[in-house]
Amino acid sequence: MLNTETPSLQHRELDQYPTEQLVAAFADDQLTAVQAVRAAVPAIARAVDAAVPRIEAGGRLLYVGAGTSGRLGVLDSVELYPTFSWPHERAVAVLAGGAEAMFQAVEGAEDNRAQGARDLLALEPSRNDVVLALAASGTTPYVLGAIQAAREVGALTIGIANNPGTPVAAEAEYGITLDTGNEIISGSTRLKAGTSQKIVLNTISSAIMVRLHKVYGNLMVDLKPTNAKLFARTVRLTMHATGADEATARTALEQCGFHVKVAVVALLKKTTVQQAGDLLDQARGSVRGALNS
Rank of each mutant, 00 (worst) to 15 (best):
D278S: 14
N227S: 09
K192R: 11
T189A: 08
G116R: 03
G59I: 03
G58L: 10
V37H: 05
T166A: 13
L132Q: 06
A101E: 07
L95I: 08
A47N: 07
V34L: 13
L22R: 08
G194E: 08
L61C: 04
L191M: 15
V153P: 08
Y63I: 11
L123Y: 10
S69W: 00
N218W: 03
Y216W: 14
E79L: 11
G243C: 02
A27S: 10
E183P: 10
P225Y: 04
N162G: 12
V287G: 09
F26Q: 04
V273K: 10
G194P: 05
A40Q: 04
R118G: 03
V94E: 04
E173D: 11
Q282K: 13
Q255T: 12
L267T: 02
H213C: 03
A207H: 02
H11G: 10
V78N: 07
K192F: 07
K270M: 02
W86G: 04
V48A: 05
A247M: 09
T271I: 07
F103K: 14
A228D: 09
G154I: 13
R284G: 12
I204F: 09
T226I: 15
V92Q: 13
T271D: 00
L72S: 03
L62S: 09
L120V: 10
T83V: 03
F26T: 08
P82V: 12
A252I: 00
E254T: 13
D29M: 11
A161H: 03
R46C: 05
A193G: 13
E107I: 04
V221E: 04
E110Y: 11
A241T: 04
H213A: 08
A150T: 07
S126D: 14
A24E: 14
A133G: 06
S286D: 00
Y17A: 04
L191Q: 14
I158L: 06
V153W: 10
T139Q: 15
V273N: 12
G289W: 05
V74S: 02
M1A: 15
A122R: 14
H88S: 11
F103D: 01
V200D: 04
L61F: 15
Q148E: 15
D119G: 13
M220L: 14
Q274D: 06
G70P: 05
P125S: 07
V262A: 08
G194R: 00
L237R: 05
D49T: 10
I185S: 09
K269R: 15
H88L: 07
S8V: 04
L75P: 00
D281M: 13
V235P: 00
E107S: 06
A57F: 10
I199A: 06
A109C: 07
I185W: 01
G73E: 05
L120E: 01
A290I: 04
A249T: 01
A290Q: 04
A43D: 12
A122L: 12
Q16V: 14
K192W: 05
T157Q: 06
V64I: 15
V23P: 06
Q16H: 14
V168D: 04
I184R: 01
I185C: 13
A247G: 01
D245A: 07
M1Q: 11
F231C: 00
Q115V: 08
L2Q: 11
